[in-house]
Design a protein around this nucleic acid. Structure first.
Length: 504
RNA sequence: GGCCUAUUCGUCUAUCGGUUAGGACGCAAGAUUUUCAUUCUUGAAAGAGCAGUUCGAUUCUGCUAUAGGCUACCA
């Protein structure tokens, strides 16, 4: 038995949807676990839907997420080219083979003719029951067919499907799916107009030639899987036909239907890994990276949407996933996309993330807000504040007061904590704070202030809350002396002076 | 309309015919905290419906309902 080989084969028609990311992830996990190979193939057989930049976007997204390909477009390999638009010669050969063996035929029906037929016959299907009424190589004399082709008349090649055959698709996740061939129409396999095959033909030929052993793809492909099985038979490739695994779909968090870009816009969460600027519509869609997610969190969250290791373990690294993943354990039902849970995963990963990296990202956000935040201080701030955020992007808004001194004071908090006697107490506290020199010794400073409170018989709450109010402008932030240790002596005193001048 | 697939707490899910149906997110309450968070504890919360098979069905079968997918010279 040879190596397992799987592929991820997107169409470059736009940003990579989060569901596509999951499909790719599962392929990756499967390949890694079995010491197999993951191939990156571009399925650009529909020239009209091509979007420039999409291919690069897909690559960059998967790189950010830590999903690596072994071969394929821009990775090289011995089975190339890996872009279907560059494989025309190959497909032509196999189209001819199908035509010669009588498993396919040429059809000249125009779009208008097909449309007319659809109006004429209810539930029209181009198949055994109707093909003899159409303009194709089955109904036209051979010399006329040849003449039409020579004249450059546009045609398509259709699969010739025998009716009333039972086709069984063996699916790793779903078991055997039985389908009667009568419900499959004579699918178009090739269009002379752009000299390109359709998905179905290209897919089978490429998977065979690239020696793919397992096709792991979305459930939307299940209905065409019987056709694919038939094509393997037509070519005589049953023996090496890959095993199928059709993954359930990712659904909208609310209501029904599969998750779409619009849901993200509507509900306020990203459906794409990276921010995407559509060159055609010039629409901008948010991405997980730009929204403040860690790739590890996105991977972990996505992996568990439709699969689980069979126990209660939820936090898993990529290595864990590679070790534990099982196609057979993938759930058959679609999974609603729960954005809140995704945020929880991210929060967990922020807690174990490198603090310097988090600080650098926060410093970047500060810069965008027009504040030059120094990295050393930022690292300290992150250390104390990271447990409070779910997204990296929440860090700066939450922590900006470490750099930007308050100019106003929250009215409610003042009303609650700034009593008539407070100004006098805070003036005294200002003196004690000035006496203390080493603010980095937060334990010593805290003891010093508390001792003073005890001597004066001041309630801690009556001191600490106004103190915080003076430094932050409201009642929030880390522990009081963590706060002063980061602010430092000079800044602490300065903020106290300002507050004392504003509050009375 | 036709075909295919699915159906356990609000959500993601565990359960290899016998369980007080477990966990996580979210939610609620309590504790902790000089603030806000964090953290901890506790709680509410589920087998779509109806038949059948069986000593016994969440688990197997059928029907119904509901949901999703597909039904293009798109993938």
């Amino acid at each position: 038995m040879g190596k397992f080989r799987v592929r991820f084969a997107p169409s470059p028609t736009g940003a990579l949807h989060i569901g596509g990311v999951r499909t790719c992830l599962y392929n990756y996990l499967f390949a890694r676990q079995n010491g197999g190979e993951l191939v990156f193939r571009i399925e650009d057989t529909d020239s009209s839907r091509f979007v420039p930049g999409a291919e690069e976007y897909i690559k960059e997204s998967l790189e950010w997420l830590g999903i690596k390909f072994d071969e394929g477009v821009s990775y090289g390999g011995n089975y190339g080219p890996y872009r279907q638009s560059e494989r025309r010669d190959i497909y032509r050969k196999y189209v001819k083979q199908l035509l010669d063996s009588g498993h396919a035929y040429i059809a000249f029906d125009t779009a208008a003719e097909l449309e007319a037929k659809r109006n004429e016959i209810k539930n029209f299907q181009y198949d055994a029951s109707t093909r003899m009424q159409m303009r194709n190589s089955l109904t036209l004399p051979a010399d006329e067919v040849k003449k039409m082709i020579d004249n450059g008349e546009k045609y398509v090649v259709r699969a010739l499907i025998e009716p009333n055959q039972e086709i069984i698709v063996h699916d790793i996740i779903r078991g055997d799916v039985h389908v009667n061939s009568s419900i499959i129409d004579d699918k178009v396999l090739y269009k002379s107009a752009d000299d390109l095959p359709t998905y179905h033909l290209a897919n089978i030929v490429d998977d065979h030639l690239m020696e793919i052993t397992h096709v792991i793809r979305g459930e939307e492909w299940l209905p065409s899987a019987p056709l694919h099985v038939l094509l393997y038979q037509f070519f005589g490739w049953e023996d090496t036909m890959p095993q199928f695994a059709h993954l359930s779909l990712l659904l909208k968090p609310d209501g029904n239907g599969k998750l779409s870009k619009r849901d993200g816009d509507r509900l306020g969460f990203p459906v794409f890994p990276l921010e995407w600027h559509d060159p055609k519509t010039s629409d901008k869609s948010s991405g997980y990276r730009e929204s403040g997610y860690l790739p590890e969190a996105v991977i972990n969250f996505l992996a568990l949407l439709g699969w689980n290791p069979g126990n209660d373990q939820e936090l898993m690294t990529m290595d864990d996933l590679i070790r534990l993943f099982e196609l057979k354990k993938c759930s058959k039902a679609g999974a609603k996309f729960d954005y809140e849970k995704g945020k929880w995963f991210n929060k967990e990963y922020i807690q174990i993330a490198d603090e310097t990296m988090l600080a650098e990202m926060m410093v970047n956000d500060a810069k965008s807000a027009g504040v030059e935040a120094d990295i050393q201080k930022a690292i300290q701030v992150v250390h104390y504040m990271k447990s409070r955020v779910s997204l990296i992007r929440e860090l700066w808004p939450l922590c900006s007061f470490f750099w930007v001194a308050p100019t106003t004071f929250n009215e409610k908090d003042v009303a609650k904590r700034w009593k008539p006697e407070t100004h006098g107490m805070m003036t005294e506290l200002r003196k004690k704070a000035a006496e203390w020199q080493d603010y980095s010794d937060l334990v010593g400073f805290e003891a010093y202030i508390k001792k003073w409170c005890a001597e004066k018989e001041y309630g801690l709450g009556n001191v600490m809350n106004p103190f915080r109010l003076m430094l932050v402008g409201e009642l929030k932030g880390p522990a009081m002396f963590e706060l002063t240790s980061i602010l430092g002596r000079e800044e602490t005193l300065r903020r106290m002076d300002y507050a004392l001048s504003q509050l009375n």
